[in-house]
Write a protein that binds this DNA or RNA. Sequence first.
RNA 1: CGGGAUGUGGCUCAGCCCGGUAGAGCACUCGCAUGGGGUGCGAGGGGUCGCAGGUUCAAAUCCUGUCAUCCCGACCA
Length: 489
Amino acid sequence: MAKNITSRDKDYAQWYLDIVKEAKLAEHSPVRGCMVIRPNGFALWENMKSVLDGMFKDTGHENAYFPLFIPKSFLSKEAQHVEGFAKECAVITHSRLASTEDGVEVDPTSKLEEELIVRPTSETIIWDTYKNWIQSYRDLPILINQWANVVRWEMRTRLFLRTMEFLWQEGHTAHATKQEAVDETIQMLNVYRDFVENYMAVPVITGVKTESERFAGAEDTYCIEALMQDGKALQAGTSHFLGQNFAKAFDVTFQDKDSTVKHVWATSWGVSTRLIGGLIMTHSDDDGLVLPPKLAPVQVVIVPIWKNDEQKAAVTEYGDKLLQELKSAGIRVRFDDRDNYKPGWKFNQYEVEGVPVRITIGPRDVENNKAEVARRDTKTKELSERTEILAKVTNLLEEIQSNLFETAKSRREAMTHTVDTYEEFKQVLEEKGGFIYAHWDGTPETEEKVKTETKATIRCIPLEGDKTPGTCMVTGNPSAQRVIFAKAY
RNA sequence: CGGGAUGUGGCUCAGCCCGGUAGAGCACUCGCAUGGGGUGCGAGGGGUCGCAGGUUCAAAUCCUGUCAUCCCGACCA
């Protein structure tokens, strides 16, 4: 039925690309590694953004905007930070073009005195700014978020999952005490978990990154990790406790109540359009995109059927009333009464685009006061009394939302394994994939060895669950608790 | 930056080996029929064959150069 979509069994990577294309979410742009986000994809992003933005405001944050360009010298102030991002920065060297016979070329006389970096993230320019805003403990905390685009010069890209330019939000906060900053880091991690699980219906594990996976410049990086249908992990969001690293690098100090001058404590946290990739890979099937009702740009579509003008008039009137009824109940509904596409074509189109609920109405329904209600997740449909439609649809949207989450969660459980030996580890990784809980001695060397030999990395040291100590599966040295290994996107 | 491949209507590609007036499918436009799961039939519009040079009476096709893109590997939210 879905003739343009490769099945997941056959080629998972191609299936993903087909979904993105057929659901009209995004496409490759003329610029290598960058994408055009199409209206369907952007509407989804706008819904995600709107929910998250509300959550940020509810936890006391304000939005602001900092420049796209960062003076080169700023980036070199925090040693770890430079090292982390140096290899993937776009650099602006000139400010002008000059006309030539064939078009234009860079005007060599316009070379910049200090080159500008297109932000890969904004810590540096933000901390340079905060320095001027903070003198006293009375100026703290500063709780700011910005919605922006950033650029990281990646070698290999994939639509939504890794592009050279992407959209995201980055929160940057400054605090008087370490505890307050740590609390903020954890609070935002929980905000992300709440959003991803309760709105995106994607189950996640919260954890701490190991040293090698940590954000450049952070003391601790907390993360939410999701598991995709193909058994690979996806980092869905990160929240960093930055300690006093940036405060020291940018000399951000305040005079405390006790009159002494101290460096401030910092956090930063972000999620990006990558979440859309995670959403697709968690719920969609071989027939197309599947969207959770809470974020779907269109939650319900009404498809009419008629053969002649007389039927058209009756069905349209019936449909319009239904449209108004659902709309006034706050449901995002579309009545697709276009006459230039066939009903069958529309069924397939909305299925591919992932609309959670479809209502079909034809002459027979008008006559009998009924309608056919179909759900996208299970692909089942049933005839409903006209008077019961609103209640049924409202109920169905909630049911689909929780069904998607539960299905994803059971799939994750089924793909989560616990191993005790390295042999067993390799075997499970090879044959099953998924999350693998194993003991690790805590050293970067062991982590690196596993990565080189198996391509699996430590996704996180989970915050919840079993904390029993043991011995490292590779070296036999003591291990504080099991950590999660997986191959990752 | 190493290894492999490809550039031909909007898209996917055939044609190239063996030079002879540019093709198919999909998409698009128009008409008629159709309409409860991608509808059928008919008519039509649209291409500097990546770019530059060369060989030839004649180049999408042969030769040289060049540019671009894609896939695989080293880096990553």
